[in-house]
Every structure is written in C-alpha cells, then in structure tokens.
Simulated assay, not measured.
Amino acid sequence: MILSGLALGAVLGFALQRGRFCVTGAFRDIWLVRQSRWLTAFLVTIAVQSVGIFALDAAGVISLGAETFPWLAAILGGLIFGFAIVYAGGCATGTYYRAGEGLVGSWIALAGYALSAAIMKHGPGAPIVEGLRGVTAPVGTVHDLLGVSPWVLVAVLVVGVGAATWHHLRKDAARTKPVQLPAKRKGLARLLFERPWNAFATAVVIGIIGIVAFPLSYAAGRESGLGITTPSADIVAFLVTGDVELVDWGVMLVLGILVGSFIAAKASGEYRMRVPDAQTVLRSAGGGLLMGLGAAIAGGCTIGNAMVGSASFTLQGWVSFAAMLLGTGIAVRFVFGARSRATASAPAKTPVGV
C-alpha cells in the first residue's frame, strides 16, 4: 500500500509544477506587493480539504483532533520557517517541485532542509524539539476552544474564501487577455502541458489530493495526511542507518513529488538544468538548513501545518500559519529592504558618450 504514496505524490508534484503553485510566493506577495491572489488560492486548498477531511472524520474513515497545543514551538518554529523560505527560494513543496525541474539551487536547499530536519528529529537536536514542544496549552483545536461544532468553522471558512476567490476571479476577468499563440498540442495534452493552469483550479486539485491522502495513508498504517518534513528527515535517517521501517507512505509521497514534477517539466518543455551563482548557493544552503530547523520545531511546514493542520482547525496549524506569514514578512524586509537601500546608495552611472 505504500506505493499509493508514490502515485499520489507524483500527481501532487505534477499539479504543483503545472500550476506554479508556490506558497513562498503567496506569502511574499502579501508583504512585497500587497497582493493576496496567491494567498487566496492557498486558502482555497485549505477550505476544500477541510470539507473533505471532516466528512471522512464524520464517516469514521479517519480520526481528527489534537489533545494539546504546543504554542511555543508553533510560534518559534513558524517564525524560523517563514524567514527561511525566503532565503531558500521556496517552501518544502516548492523546493521539491523545482528540484524536479532541474533547479540546482533547490536541490541544495532540499538537502539542507532534509539534513537539518533529520538532526532535529532523529539526532542531537531531538531533545531540544521535545523540550520546546513540551510547552503546551490544554486545548488543541479551534472548535474545542470556542465550544462549537467544527462544521461551523468549515462553513465560515468556505464562505469567506469563496468571497475572496470571487473577488479575484472578477478582477481576472476584467484584465486584458494576452495574445494566445497558436496551439502546438490538441485536446488533453494541450490542457495538461501547454496552457498555464489557473491558480484557483490548481488549488482545488491540490485540496482534493490532500483529502485523498488521508484514507490512502491510513490504509498504509500511517495515520496522517500530506506531510513533507518528517518523510524528508526519514530519508536521511534511512540513508544513514539502513532501517527500512523508516521508508513508509510519507517517504514515497515526497519521492513521488520529484517524479511528478520532473514528468510535468519535461513534457511541457520547462525542464532545464540551472546552476546558481555562489551567493545563491550559500543562501539556498542556509535557507534550507533553517527551513528544516523551523519545520521540525513547529511540527510541520506549509503543508503539514499551514494546510493540513489549518484544514482540521488545530491551533498548531493556524498559529504556525500566522507565524510563518510573519516570518516571511521579516525576511522580505531584510532581503528586499537591503537591496533597495543598496540601489539607492549606489552612485549614478554616467551615460555613455557624455
């Protein structure tokens, strides 16, 4: 059954690549250009998944809930992770699918992410993570905290996200349409590989994948949904120890993302090996290491926490989501603010011929 993780991961990687679905870009746009289109698309994945997984929970297929809320780890880890993804050039899933496109910088960030996550989960950093995550509040979910049915929160989320999506779709419809080049493919091939995927359509697809992940993962003995950090750490631990029990459904899922994104990039003509400069290598490596550190402390990345955790209305999910968004804003101020100051202080160039 763990091979279903490989298959679903390939579908996820394919959708991420064709939709250019980048959570880092969604978070960064809020701070850099005050644009919420991609963040709204990300919220669509949460809303779609929330409806599906609470339906599965009601049907007894899966069991949702959180006993406690590790608030300190969620805040601290989320801030670190949000800060790191700007320097790494992508979050966990973004790094995986860009690695499948041939982006060497993403391979470097991915290696740093998996290594530091393994250190913090399986190595000398584990006691630190355990200590931070041991600082908890007794209530683990938003609906338990408020004393309401989770379906009330699902309804509020769906209505709110639906209104925001309608706003952006109306703005998209009002824009001047770009000139369409003659199609090189026909039918399904054109839809899959040639035409750019709509952000909101991609979000719905990813949300459905998130729903399907739960019963498939449960059937393989892993009682969880989509997750990137622990499987990435388990890959490193397996390579070091050779313990085959570490190779579970989640490991197959993340390997599938690489496979699916590679297939999508090759078929669409977007695969190209791109070697970064020295500065990008250092930023990718440092960002990847910090990303694994933050995700291990927070208990997940933008998928495991900000998407899956938020969809099930855990306090860890929503608080870490907010902390990641804030951490991204801090990094944007450091990175893009420094560039702006450097540009402003640079001496003006004398025009040629003057």
Score class of each variant (00 low, 15 high):
G300D: 06
P347I: 10
F14H: 05
H168N: 00
P196Y: 01
N198Y: 06
A311I: 02
C301D: 09
R272V: 14
S4V: 13
I297A: 06
P231A: 08
F27W: 04
I108R: 08
D29C: 02
I62F: 03
S149F: 04
F42K: 02
P196C: 00
E130G: 11
W107M: 15
R170V: 02
D248S: 06
L146G: 14
L289S: 07
L188N: 06
G65W: 15
V135E: 05
L282W: 10
G287H: 09
L3I: 11
V247R: 09
V86P: 06
R185K: 10
A88C: 07
Y218A: 07
T68F: 03
A323L: 01
G89S: 14
G317D: 02
V142W: 02
K266E: 14
A220Y: 08
G105Y: 13
V259F: 06
G242S: 07
A137G: 09
G89A: 09
Y87L: 15
V204N: 03
T350I: 15
A174P: 01
A15H: 04
V240K: 10
S116I: 14
T176W: 02
E130L: 09
Y96C: 08
Q180T: 13
T136N: 11
R339S: 14
I30G: 11
W107I: 15
G25N: 13
K266F: 08
N305T: 12
S4L: 13
F69R: 05
V179N: 03
L76V: 14
V152R: 11
T230K: 09
F14A: 02
W318T: 09
A163D: 00
V104G: 09
R333W: 05
A298K: 02
D172K: 02
F334W: 08
A203V: 00
E223V: 08
V240G: 03
A201G: 12
A264S: 11
A306T: 03
V11I: 15
L146M: 12
L191K: 01
F54G: 07
A342D: 05
V308N: 02
S310F: 08
A201V: 12
D243L: 15
T229M: 14
V275W: 15
M120E: 10
T328K: 14
R272Q: 14
V354W: 14
L132K: 03
V259D: 08
S345R: 15
Q35E: 09
L216M: 07
F336Y: 15
A264K: 04
G292C: 12
K186P: 10
E194S: 07
D234E: 10
L157T: 10
P231F: 12
R339V: 06
N198E: 10
E270Y: 01
G210Y: 01
R339D: 12
I119V: 11
V354K: 04
D144H: 05
L325I: 09
